[in-house]
Computed example of a mutant assay.
Amino acid sequence: MELPALNGLSCPLTNNALSVVDSKDKQRGDIVIFDEKIIFSGERPDDEHPLNSIIVIEFKQPGRNKYAGDENPVLQAAKVINAIRGGKYLHKGRAIPIANADIPATIFVVADLTPKLRQVLTDFNATMTPDKQGFYGYHANHRVYYEVMDYTKMLSDAKKRNRIFFDKLNLVDNR
């Protein structure tokens, strides 16, 4: 499936369409960020730069209220991280190298915090944020830190954080 064309360019929805990363794994993160070590020296070999950390960002459908027992968005993203750690994601035909099996991994989930998702996260033993607009925690078995944030909170925080930028550009709608 593809997004509508933008100036004649198509936008693939799945990361298996990217020529940089190959995977036959069905679980895919919406956004996967790799952090690799770069050594500053006169030579830079092209063969291997192991990953220092992995970040997976997962966006869930707005208003989604149907989460089956195995549809915990944190666990879905953790499966992507475990697939990367397990060598199931390839770059140029080779497994993406990681520094070690315990490299830090972080999951960010942006979703509407419906009553069902709140229950899934509570059953998962996630900790609710003080403002009750998100959850966070550490899953020891998967060795991942995770945060789940309500879409409305993310949007509100982004507007507050970037307001001065838009004020300076005179792009603020004061309605």
Rank of each mutant, 00 (worst) to 15 (best):
residue 103 I to N: 01
residue 134 G to T: 04
residue 142 H to R: 07
residue 129 T to A: 13
residue 90 L to E: 07
residue 75 L to S: 12
residue 87 G to S: 04
residue 35 D to H: 11
residue 138 Y to D: 05
residue 123 D to P: 06
residue 100 N to Y: 13
residue 114 T to R: 06
residue 118 R to V: 15
residue 130 P to V: 02
residue 45 P to A: 08
residue 121 L to C: 10
residue 43 E to Y: 07
residue 77 A to K: 04
residue 90 L to A: 05
residue 73 P to H: 00
residue 77 A to M: 11
residue 62 P to H: 07
residue 87 G to D: 06
residue 138 Y to N: 10
residue 36 E to Y: 15
residue 126 A to M: 00
residue 131 D to C: 10
residue 37 K to M: 12
residue 104 P to T: 03
residue 114 T to S: 14
residue 139 H to Y: 09
residue 122 T to A: 11
residue 38 I to T: 05
residue 116 K to V: 15
residue 49 H to W: 03
residue 125 N to L: 14
residue 69 G to D: 06
residue 140 A to P: 09
residue 137 G to S: 08
residue 53 S to C: 14
residue 131 D to I: 08
residue 81 I to E: 03
residue 110 V to N: 03
residue 110 V to L: 15
residue 59 F to Y: 11
residue 105 A to R: 00
residue 80 V to W: 05
residue 136 Y to Q: 13
residue 142 H to V: 09
residue 72 N to Q: 06
residue 112 D to M: 07
residue 87 G to M: 04
residue 114 T to V: 02
residue 142 H to W: 04
residue 118 R to E: 15
residue 87 G to R: 01
residue 113 L to W: 05
residue 34 F to D: 03
residue 99 A to D: 10
residue 38 I to K: 12
residue 134 G to K: 00
residue 81 I to W: 04
residue 111 A to Y: 08
residue 134 G to A: 07
residue 82 N to T: 07
residue 90 L to W: 05
residue 109 V to L: 03
